[in-house]
C-alpha cells in the first residue's frame, strides 16, 4: 500500500471530475468527521479514513484484500477504470444524472446501454459525452456511464437510439464478483 504518485493522482482525479465537480472531490478529502485518504494497493485505489488505513498497514501485502471503499483500478496501460463500488460516493455528489424507467432497469443491470425508450428523466444541460450517474425512478443509484447525446438531442431522438453508454452497473456484483478484487 502506498499513496498515489503525482501522475496517478492526476489521472485519477481527472476521471473522477467527469462525474463529480472538483469542489466535491475536495469534500471527499477534507471531511469534518475524520481525515480520509486515497491509497494504492495492488493497482487498486482505496478510499478510507486514516485510522483504518493505518491498521490495514499491519497486514502483509499478500493477505490484505481490501480496506475502506475501492474506487477502481489502474490498468496496465496507466489508465484509470472506475468501479461501481465507488457509486456510494459518486451518486450523492453527481452533477449529471439519468433516470431510467422501471422497464429499463433490468436491461441496464444486465450491462446494456440506456435507450431513449427507457429514459425517464435527464438532468438539463447535460452535454454530449458527459459522465452521468444512472438512477432508477425511485432514486436508487444503479450505475454510471457516458451520455451519448446532449439533453437537447435526446428530445428528438428516436426511441431505439442510445442515450447513455454503459460503463458500470451494480449488476456487476453478480456478474463479475470474481474479478472485482
Amino acid at each position: 500500500m502506498r499513496p498515489l504518485t503525482a501522475e496517478e493522482t492526476k489521472t485519477f482525479f481527472e476521471k473522477l471530475a467527469k462525474y463529480i465537480s472538483p469542489e466535491n472531490i475536495k469534500l471527499l478529502l477534507d471531511r469534518p468527521d475524520a481525515s480520509y485518504c486515497f491509497r494504492l494497493h495492488k493497482d487498486r485505489v482505496f478510499y478510507a479514513s486514516e485510522k483504518i488505513m493505518l491498521t490495514a498497514n499491519n497486514f502483509a501485502r499478500k493477505e490484505l484484500v481490501s480496506f475502506g471503499t475501492c474506487f477502481g483500478k489502474f490498468t496496465k496501460t496507466g489508465k484509470f477504470r472506475l468501479y461501481m463500488t465507488a457509486l456510494d460516493y459518486l451518486a450523492p455528489y453527481a452533477q449529471f444524472k439519468v433516470w431510467v424507467k422501471p422497464n429499463g432497469e433490468q436491461s441496464f443491470l444486465y450491462g446494456n446501454h440506456v435507450l431513449k425508450s427507457h429514459l425517464g428523466r435527464i438532468t438539463d444541460s447535460t452535454s454530449k459525452y458527459q459522465g452521468v450517474i444512472v438512477m432508477s425512478m425511485s432514486d436508487v443509484p444503479l450505475g454510471f456511464g457516458v451520455s451519448a447525446k446532449s439533453t437537447q438531442e435526446c428530445r428528438r431522438a428516436d426511441p431505439s437510439s442510445i442515450v447513455t453508454f454503459h460503463q458500470a452497473d451494480v449488476g456487476e456484483y453478480l456478474r463479475t464478483e470474481e474479478t472485482l478484487l
Partner: peptide, 14 residues
C-alpha cells in the same frame, strides 16, 4: 461489503 455500502471494514485473508 461494497454492495451494502460498508466503509469501515478491512478485509484480510490471514
Amino acid at each position: 461489503i461494497h454492495r451494502l455500502g460498508v466503509v469501515n471494514t478491512i478485509v484480510c485473508s490471514e
